[in-house]
Design a protein around this nucleic acid. Structure first.
Ligand SMILES: [Mn+2]
Ligand SMILES: [Mn+2]
Ligand SMILES: [Mn+2]
Ligand SMILES: [Mn+2]
Lengths: 224, 224
DNA sequence: TCCTTATTTTAGGCTTTCCTAAATTATTGT
DNA sequence: ACAATAATTTAGGAAAGCCTAAAATAAGGA
């Protein structure tokens, strides 16, 4: 009864997975924005995913979607591929930090389980990705994260950057040149309530910098 | 005016390329057999390829197809990806001789030019593939081959195996276990005209073996 | 509460790639 | 040369993913 899942379906499920780690359910509009397609197309696809058997998403009209266990499995499998590939491209083929994401986003759907197994072994069965995010295990377990978003930190708080989002190559460039990489120790110095700017110090770079919400929302920190 | 080419179109063009190195033009039926789809579907696709601009194939009803310069370019680009990938999977990821083809057949459509460049460099810019076939250069030049098919050899002739076809994993297994690999020196001892069997000796294995047409058609030899 | 606005869904349509069945064209043996 | 057979093409249709425009629904402010 398990119909094979198309590349496009894997992309939808990955996006829904990522959106539902932030909110309880993902809305049609958010999914459309991330995938850069029309909301009508998203409704269309979501309804098909809910009609599969077993269903891959839990859908109620005008109430957004969540993943079923089956759908989450597919999302995590794809995410594991993605993160192993990013590491692989960087470590073994010399890709730069901001080059890996786009290539991994295509390859993730196409590599076999054997390919996954081979690169995982060559990389030493890593548990964290290029940007510090956890890599789902072979059995698709994801460790619980206790890091918080830099966006939610306030003056006086310190911490160590655990991970950054991998979506935007330009931003990754920016983060790297400013030392905002996993392992960096930071301290929040000031907060502007109107624009949500954070003034922070990066220990390693011995440098102070003011970051807008577009940046701070992409960085995750272990406190203290 | 250059529309991007779909994965499926790349597969069609690759098949037509391969068929037209044997015969002048490729027939609808042959293409259908190789791609394992109906002849009607092939006619359909071929007509679309001929209607592209620039056209990717040269088509005349009931007379088969050939590649245009444009179509050949796409085929060679894909073939270069395929052969570099096969080598890469074998040399760097430990794939066996008969495992690489299927994976390469999927990845070939998805890797970027940068990926191609990186693996080519890691492999030392090879000019021959895993099975001895020439790899089209970065500029898509293919050296002229002067090897002949073992199928066309007759008793008394000797030669060195240059390459074998990569299509059938089972056959590759068989060839490898019998020492029928690039570099092997062989001599034709006998020929049965009715079944086209060839009785040959493999120097390296110090062994005699009788091969049917299904096998001899897959092996290419430099004479003397 | 009720009306305006934003979001979502439905309806209808397009492209790509495949299918089967029927029609057409080419080939071949006599 | 021509009839039988084989190969190819046409016709009609399906599924997956996308679109725009219009309709329906939900949410929020007055
Ligand atoms: Mn993807
Ligand atoms: Mn996997
Ligand atoms: Mn292929
Ligand atoms: Mn290329």
């Amino acid at each position: 009864m398990e119909s094979p899942v198309s590349e496009r379906v894997e992309d939808y499920l990955k996006v829904i997975y990522s959106l539902t780690t932030e909110d309880e359910r993902a809305s049609t509009g958010e999914i459309a924005r991330v995938l850069q397609i029309s909301p009508a197309s998203v409704t269309d696809m979501i309804q098909r995913l809910a009609a599969e058997n077993p269903p891959l998403v839990d859908y109620r009209k005008h109430q957004g979607v969540g993943l079923t266990e089956e759908g989450e499995k597919v999302a995590l499998e794809t995410l594991r591929h993605h993160r192993l590939l990013e590491l692989f491209l960087h470590e073994l083929l010399g890709y730069s930090w901001d080059q890996v994401h786009e290539e991994a986003d295509r390859l993730e759907h196409v590599i076999s389980e054997y390919f996954e197994e081979r690169i995982s072994e060559v990389l030493g069965d890593p548990e964290k990705g290029l940007y510090g995010e956890p890599i789902p295990s072979e059995e698709l377990h994801v460790p619980v994260r206790e890091d918080i978003c830099l966006h939610d930190m306030r003056p006086g708080q310190r911490g160590v950057i655990q991970s950054v989002k991998d979506d935007d190559p330009g931003l990754l460039q920016y983060l790297q040149t400013n030392g905002l990489v996993p392992g960096a120790r930071i301290e929040v110095l000031d907060y502007s309530p109107y624009d949500n700017n954070l003034h922070i110090r990066v220990k390693e770079h011995d440098q102070e910098i003011v970051l807008g919400a577009a940046v701070t929302a992409q960085i995750f920190v272990d406190l203290q």
